[in-house]
């Protein structure tokens, strides 16, 4: 089966979720990758390692205007005859995949968490991670957008051939005025390790112990909703049903009770550590490791322990 994978290659380095999408495509069929921008031929050829046979690159535009990207991918669908089109369900995928779905009349499975089942249905998270649903596609062509961090990236091949491609992307009607990238921060949706804290920390002046641990681990920081709502922490750190949904390898939660709306954003984490003074806190039911104790003592102690561990490894 012919599979087309769109990746965003505009960053300096091809992101992990792009490699996941290529890898996922390879599990379904013969993979052609389509991308745009200025990535070097050699870094694109490297995609062969993750399962791409061929890479089509449109160098006529750099941005991620979703209308342009949609036109380019539609052109590539046409020229490759692909029946399955894969995106990462990241910010770009979320905007482009639905557009493409209408443009080429292909059913979309948004946020797939696994390869298709033998009956062709595909698992997705529903009810904010509280359940799985199995989606059937009723059209000839199908689009799958893969939830980041759902599959383990493996090296499966050699080099891909790289070809210049004209995707007839047209003009952009969107002007970029400003781009703000907070320096030094690890973007939360991509972080593999996350240290998070809630109202149990009592006030914004106490976040130093959270940041110290995050820094020592190389983790991103997050918080519960009331903490963001009262302005203790910036809005983009708010995780949960109405904030960001994350799936890191490790989620450490200190002074968070574990309300169902909070869990909805973090229950995809591989391992959860909960630190709370109240042994009855609901979060312990969702945790792998629990520490019944005062965050003001436990967090600095944990930071010291990580330091010691790093020094001896």
């Amino acid at each position: 089966m012919s599979v087309l994978v769109y990746i965003n290659s505009n960053g300096e380095k091809i992101a992990k979720n792009a490699l996941e999408a290529v890898n996922y495509g390879k599990k379904i069929g013969e993979v052609t990758v389509v991308t745009n921008g200025k990535a070097s031929d050699s870094s694109l050829a490297e995609l062969g390692k993750y399962g791409a046979s061929k890479v089509l690159i449109d160098r006529s535009f750099e941005g991620i205007d979703e209308q342009q990207v949609t036109r380019m991918v539609a052109t590539a669908v046409e020229s490759t005859g692909a029946e399955t089109i894969i995106f990462s369900n990241d910010l770009v995928g979320k905007a482009v995949a639905p557009r493409l779905s209408v443009k080429i009349n292909a059913g979309l499975v948004a946020g797939a968490t696994a390869v298709p089942e033998s009956n062709g249905t595909i698992a997705v998270n529903v009810f904010s991670g509280k359940a799985f649903g199995y989606v059937k596609v009723n059209t000839d062509k199908r689009i799958i957008s893969l939830l980041p961090n759902s599959i383990q990236v493996e090296e499966v091949g050699g080099e891909a051939s790289v070809e210049e491609f004209s995707g007839n992307a047209g003009e952009s009607v969107i002007t970029i005025k400003d781009t703000k990238m907070p320096e030094g921060d690890i973007p939360l949706p991509e972080a593999e390790l996350v240290v998070s804290a809630g109202r149990g920390l009592k006030g914004p002046e106490n976040w130093g112990i959270v940041e110290d641990l995050a820094k020592e681990l190389g983790a991103a920081t997050a918080c519960s909703r009331p903490v963001a709502d009262t302005g203790w922490r910036p809005h983009h750190e708010h995780v949960g049903q109405t904030g960001v949904a994350i799936r890191p390898n490790l989620y450490i939660a200190a002074g968070i009770s574990g309300a169902i709306q909070h869990l909805a954003g973090v229950n995809g984490s591989k391992v959860i550590v909960v630190i709370n003074t109240d042994e009855e806190a609901p979060f312990f039911k969702a945790a792998d490791y629990g520490v019944v104790g005062d965050a003001f003592e436990v967090l600095p102690r944990l930071t010291e322990a990580v330091k010691k561990f790093k020094a001896s490894n």
């Binding site: 779905s101 249905t121 359940a131 799985f132 649903g133 199995y134 989606v135 059937k136 596609v137 059209t139």
Partner: peptide, 8 residues
């Protein structure tokens, strides 16, 4: 274009 067949 799509339908949910089953839940778990």
């Amino acid at each position: 274009n799509t339908s949910f067949e089953k839940y778990a």
